[in-house]
Amino acid sequence: MLSYQHSFHAGNAADVHKHALLAFALDYLTRKDKALSYLESHAGRGLYDLSDAMARRTGEASAGVARLEQRFAPDHPWRRTLDAIRKEHGPTCYPGSPLFAAHLLRRFDSLHFAELHPQEHAALTESLPRNPNTRIYKRDGLEMAKALTPPDPRRGLMLIDPSWEVRADYETIARLVPTIHAKWNVGIIMLWYPLLVDRRHAPMLRALKAAVPDLLVSEVSFPPAREGHGMIGSGMAVINAPWGLADEAGRIADLFKEE
């Protein structure tokens, strides 16, 4: 959606859940000295300022990273990366998933990011470190996901993270993810989705579980960030989950339950 801008939502509780799982998975993958591919379908601008007017208008970061970050150990890959990026860009910044990936991956890994929104694409180009193995595409992210799989190298991870502003996205994703998995059976596919009051994600999740029986599902609940806000939790469905991610998902869920 060209109307969607994540600056209103950056650093919210769903970002913490999503990025903590992503950071753990990438940290695990890079323990082996072997190149990998990283693909992201809806990249956004990469770096957000939580002190700007858009972030302050919603207050979602106050209910997210500001409330949750101290619950993570300093050596957790998410917390460690967040601290490192803040040292470079200032204490009010929050990295999107492209910067988490760029920070955790190596120069010999291949990184592919799709972002169709003109302003977000330009900002992403500015925020990402210069790396000859990084590609930024101004194209539909789901189209890129289909076109680039299987990637080279085949070892790797794809993050699919749509805006979910169109109800038809749920049916589209339910068909697309198994197709990508069939083309790239060794790839880790991480799909983020919101938990909304009307549970519109439920049919999609049932379809994915039917297509991929060993699908890992991690869901956390949290209070609405403000009155009338429909998101009451965050979900991540993972195909070919790396070793330890299921246990890590449980630990992260416990952090969301702490008072």
Rank of each mutant, 00 (worst) to 15 (best):
P213E: 12
D169W: 06
H112A: 02
V217A: 04
L215F: 09
T134G: 02
G90V: 04
D161H: 01
A123P: 10
R200C: 11
R135L: 11
S234L: 02
H103D: 08
R206Q: 11
L157E: 08
E60P: 01
G44K: 06
Y170I: 10
S163Y: 05
A35R: 07
R135P: 09
R167I: 13
D52G: 12
M236N: 05
E143D: 11
L47R: 02
L208Q: 01
T92D: 04
R206Y: 13
R206V: 09
R67V: 10
H9A: 08
V177Y: 08
D52A: 08
V177K: 05
S51T: 09
T81V: 15
S163M: 07
S62R: 15
C93N: 09
P98F: 00
G96A: 05
L36F: 10
D247E: 15
H112G: 02
G11R: 07
I180M: 13
A102F: 01
R107G: 13
Y170M: 11
P223G: 11
S97P: 01
I173P: 01
K183Q: 13
M204L: 03
I136H: 00
L215H: 05
K18N: 09
A10P: 00
K87M: 15
A73P: 06
A61C: 07
V16P: 00
Q5L: 15
K209F: 15
I160E: 02
L124Y: 03
V217I: 06
K257E: 14
S41L: 05
K209N: 10
A101W: 00
I252P: 03
L29S: 15
D52K: 11
H9E: 11
L105N: 09
I232W: 04
H112C: 04
E227S: 14
C93R: 11
A210M: 10
A23C: 15
R135I: 13
G96R: 01
Y28K: 15
R31P: 04
H9N: 09
K18W: 06
E165Y: 05
M231C: 06
T149R: 15
N133K: 07
